[in-house]
Design a protein around this nucleic acid. Sequence first.
DNA 1: ATATTAATTGTCGTTTTGACAATTAATATT
DNA 2: AATATTAATTGTCAAAACGACAATTAATAT
Lengths: 232, 232
Amino acid sequence: MIEYSGQPHYLVAVDCIVFGFDGEHLKILLVKRGLEPEINKWSLMGGFVGANESPDDAANRVLKKMTGLEGVYLEQMQIYGEPGRDPIERTLSVGYFALIDIHKYEAQLNDDYEAEWFLINDRPKLIFDHDQMVADARKKLRYKAALHPILFEMLPKKFTIPQLHILFEEVNDTKIDTRNFSRKITSTGLLIKLAEKDRTGSKKGAFYFKLDKKKYNANSQAFLNLMPNLKI
Amino acid sequence: MIEYSGQPHYLVAVDCIVFGFDGEHLKILLVKRGLEPEINKWSLMGGFVGANESPDDAANRVLKKMTGLEGVYLEQMQIYGEPGRDPIERTLSVGYFALIDIHKYEAQLNDDYEAEWFLINDRPKLIFDHDQMVADARKKLRYKAALHPILFEMLPKKFTIPQLHILFEEVNDTKIDTRNFSRKITSTGLLIKLAEKDRTGSKKGAFYFKLDKKKYNANSQAFLNLMPNLKI
DNA sequence: ATATTAATTGTCGTTTTGACAATTAATATT
DNA sequence: AATATTAATTGTCAAAACGACAATTAATAT
């Protein structure tokens, strides 16, 4: 029997930075850790990669288990593998970021876990290197969202341009001219205007739009320029 | 003693897709595998992640060991972790792509390993999922090179615009108008024109340029638009 | 009826893009 | 020595994209 004798073996985990948007602010979903060490401290949603699953499978499983949601937007970020990052035992973790519609989450919430949404800018200190992961995820979200239409993933099926506008401002932590934004986002050809209006936010009301799934899937690779005066 | 009892442990490896440019074509550096299984088959440069190193450390170590080169451009791509990808034992591999100056390599070559450059489009079949890794690396190289000035990493310190032009065409597998390319690349402000000319390629000769390291490092995050009519 | 407010559409000069032409600096040929 | 040749470089220009800012519109509140 051939084997890679003498090579060390490690635990492999996944950790998910789950982003959501409540209409005003960017938030992340954290959980109270259920095992030692650092039990009851806040951490990212994570778990070990099982024997018969890939890291991607594991991330989806963890998300399903802890939020009840399936088929969420999930993107591999990078691996975190410094030898001492977990004090108990060498563990490498694959970082993912997820974008979910916060309202879907409320509906599907799995109460077995103590999970809570925090404002991205007002969150508790996290265990291990999870704060670094969050920082990296934010950066990558910004980068990706400037080029690809992924922020829709955090909005409900029907959404308005002003909602999208606030979300873009939150993610990029900057002001964007509403007039130019509106034109730019519609000129992508990815939005379908609905007859209905959202009247909760203003007197005039804002038209609802939905995503043109066909074009969205076809163009998910294309480069757009969604951020004005972009300097990252 | 706390421990994560009962969780499976795996081998963790790194694999590097090493890109080079010979002045005409994009190439990758492959090695004859030195251990079973699939011994003597062509594969990517790789190795297991040691007990006291991070995956990034391991990738740098492997590159140093097999090419003699240090400080090469190295970028983490993604993790490959399908349960059955290594037939002997569950092994997860972190894929990296590296950009090196092929001439530096010739000078520093480590002859202990059977390594050989292959045309990217005319290479032997590789072991395991390494062909998939190469395909992914190519895609990511294209993506990144369209937005960031990284292809310089494959050229010598002094290079000409025509050299760079051919390299861009190779990477993107397309024709680019020389006139527009020349202006676009110089307008980035990243190049410093030297007095010397390269006379080997033409009668008129082409001016050598070098990278403005200061601006290069400062702008490595900025978005450029280096590819015309970009549809990825 | 009128004021108010946010959403939406307009305007316009500037910059970027990319298709294509002309010029230039060398060597090779007559 | 004049001329042809070739690849590098600079020029031209119309179309598109960008972004600063103004005006209009569709509703509700007074």
